[in-house]
Design a protein around this nucleic acid. Structure first.
Lengths: 154, 154
DNA sequence: ATAAAACCTCAACTATAGTTGAGGTCAATA
DNA sequence: TATTGACCTCAACTATAGTTGAGGTTTTAT
């Protein structure tokens, strides 16, 4: 027999509870990720989810991406661009993490610039919409007339 | 008369629309901030909000704090600790911004550490719960037994 | 004086990222 | 076999940070 029992090594299908235990993610979160298309499962005859072992890597990748501040929808899009339900390869991971590292770098740079401005404004405190770089980071005022002016259009 | 008309310089009370236009924040947001205790207003005989000019600085401070990633509830708490409805002084601002700068620095450091880990893991791709620093940033596994293990207890 | 613009409250809705619970089924163990 | 634990779906709820709209009032401008 090539298929061992529940506690054997070879079995490749995991239940949702096992994935939860091994990945550190709640069962409800795994359900949620599935509704969002971040992970996929098959069902056994009793309609219970059975995951290929590769789901563990997928969840790991999702969690790392989240730590870098990537929204789930973006993570989903990135994963969906890959052939889904072949397990993620090291090469996939390298490509994804390279992208996310770059966006993380960008975020770090923005926050660092903000901190520098904050540092230089601590003694000033003007916070003037027109003059203060903290309040008017893109120098957009006076380009338009009066009226509400969004500072962070993002 | 010491009180000039709507377009004069001396008037110190602002309507919600004026505050919106001058601060770059939507009227609905100002209402919302008021329900959260972040800003305060008086009412005229017609029940319309009238703001002291100091509200502009308050809103500016709120917006800067938000940019550094501070949640509104924390901003509220910080502002509430100050004598409220005397306008914020430069000294107030210095104390607040110093705190927020420190927390921003902390965030930057965490993100930088994450990026460094990401960089060193790009070529590896193990993402093992036990071995990978990305997956187990606090080295908490194996301290407990089996079972679900939250990676980011926050 | 009248019409338009600005204001009021309150409830409901948006988005993100899930969690909780009800009511019912399936699977592993004694 | 029976019971317990794990699983199922679906709806509702949490939190954060607001936005939108309905229905009605006040202020401003002509």
């Amino acid at each position: 027999m090539t298929k061992k029992d529940k506690h054997g090594d070879i079995r490749r299908e995991l239940s949702v509870g096992e994935v939860a235990a091994r990945s550190g993610v709640a069962v409800s979160t795994l359900h949620f990720y599935e509704t969002k298309g971040l992970i996929h499962s098959l069902r056994n005859r009793g309609n219970q989810r059975r995951y290929p072992r590769g789901v563990l890597r997928r969840v790991a990748v999702i969690k790392v991406a989240q730590r870098t501040g990537i929204p789930l929808a973006d993570i989903q899009a990135a994963l969906a661009a890959l052939p889904h339900d072949r397990p993620l390869t090291v090469h996939d991971w390298a490509a994804l993490s390279e992208r996310w590292r770059a966006s993380l770098t960008e975020r770090i740079e923005k926050l660092t610039a903000l901190r520098d401005q904050l540092t230089s404004c601590i003694g000033c405190g003007c916070l003037s919409m027109e003059d203060c770089p903290l309040r008017n980071p893109y120098d957009t005022l006076n380009a338009r007339g009066a009226g509400p002016q969004l500072i962070e259009p993002t």
